[in-house]
């Protein structure tokens, strides 16, 4: 590879990389798309056969029961929950209570012990 680079023109090498690169990116994404389009149902089916209804740990979202439940609906619910939580703070009681805190004496900001101590 490195020896080839010495003698070939970088531009033509560039074209090779251009086309093979694009081809590879596309094929890998197409493969991924195909697998998720056709392979995933098979995988889920196989999983179902293997476990045979033993799977109770993870509760499944029933797709058929919620066919009317679209992404928009869930977005609305999500937004309302978010707004409720973020504005919850505003519904606090307006009564302020200021309690006096008793502390042991500390001379850190004392006016008595200054540099120009004129008693």
């Amino acid at each position: 590879m490195t020896h080839l680079l010495l003698y070939t023109d970088p531009i033509s090498e560039g074209y090779v990389i251009l086309f093979t690169g694009l081809l590879i990116v596309f094929t890998s994404l197409v493969l991924l798309a195909l697998i998720f389009n056709y392979g995933l149902p098979i995988m889920l089916y196989v999983y179902k056969i293997i476990t045979k209804g033993k799977d109770k740990k993870i509760s499944e979202i029933k797709v058929k029961g919620d066919s009317g439940f679209t992404g928009e609906l869930s977005a609305v619910i999500g937004a309302s929950v978010h707004m409720y939580l973020s504005e919850q703070h505003d519904i606090e009681s307006g009564i302020l209570t200021i309690k006096e805190v008793k502390k042991a004496y500390s001379p850190w900001s004392s006016k008595i012990y200054g540099i120009q101590n004129r008693l």
Partner: peptide, 13 residues
Amino acid sequence: PPRAVTQKEKMIF
């Protein structure tokens, strides 16, 4: 609207 995706699919992905 996109179909609902099950949790299992999301885990497999």
